[in-house]
């Protein structure tokens, strides 16, 4: 057994305990009382007042499919394998297409899906992206009723339409 011996209670220590209890509790009360009057509230009323997230906050991923060259680097870097990419080789007679930074697009994207429920928001995929089309946005309120709703296919028009709203400039 690894316990300490109890000190015997004397008359002196009995009153000393009472004295200590009163003074230390009073000391604590002076600190908490100061918070009532002297300190301003630090909390915000959430749904009405919203905190602005820092610009490099890592929230929902957004892929700008027009600039995506389907290089598959993001899917390789992803530690939880939540990015699904399918692409076709672009026909030779098709007109030349370029991403906004000048990289030639040689593969046609058929599917670009991210399972946002599986994503761990680590940011490894965005740093390897050569055309910087895959970015973390600051949009963090995207709850869904079903798990399937968390799978975003970035080729669908509804998600392409979100671009102006959520992508950082």
């Amino acid at each position: 057994m690894n316990q300490a011996a109890v000190k015997p209670l004397t008359v002196k220590s009995y009153f000393h305990n009472i004295y200590e209890a009163v003074t230390t509790v009073f000391k604590g009360f002076t600190i908490t009382t100061r918070y009532i009057f002297a300190e301003k509230p630090v909390t915000i009323e959430y749904p009405e007042v919203r905190e602005v997230l820092p610009s490099n906050s890592r929230s929902r991923l957004y892929n700008d499919v027009e600039n995506c060259i389907a290089c598959n680097q993001c899917a390789t870097a992803c530690p939880v394998d939540c990015i699904y990419i399918a692409s076709n080789r672009r026909p030779k007679d098709a007109p030349e297409k370029k991403a906004s930074d000048g990289t030639a697009i040689k593969l046609d994207l058929i599917q670009y899906t991210i399972d946002t429920a599986l994503c761990c928001y680590c940011g490894l995929c965005t740093t390897v992206c050569p055309t910087e089309c895959l970015t973390h946005t600051t949009d963090h309120e995207f709850s869904q009723y079903t798990l399937d709703g968390m799978k975003y296919d970035y080729l669908t028009p509804e998600i392409i339409a979100m671009r102006d709203r959520i992508v950082k400039k």
Partner: peptide
């Protein structure tokens, strides 16, 4: 220092923690 005055030296806290769970 404030935390220590508020909690660490408080008699109730000391009674609850001193001589308890000794890992020597």
């Amino acid at each position: 220092e404030k935390y220590h005055n508020l909690v660490g030296l408080n008699k109730i806290f000391v009674e609850r923690t001193a001589n308890v769970g000794i890992m020597n």
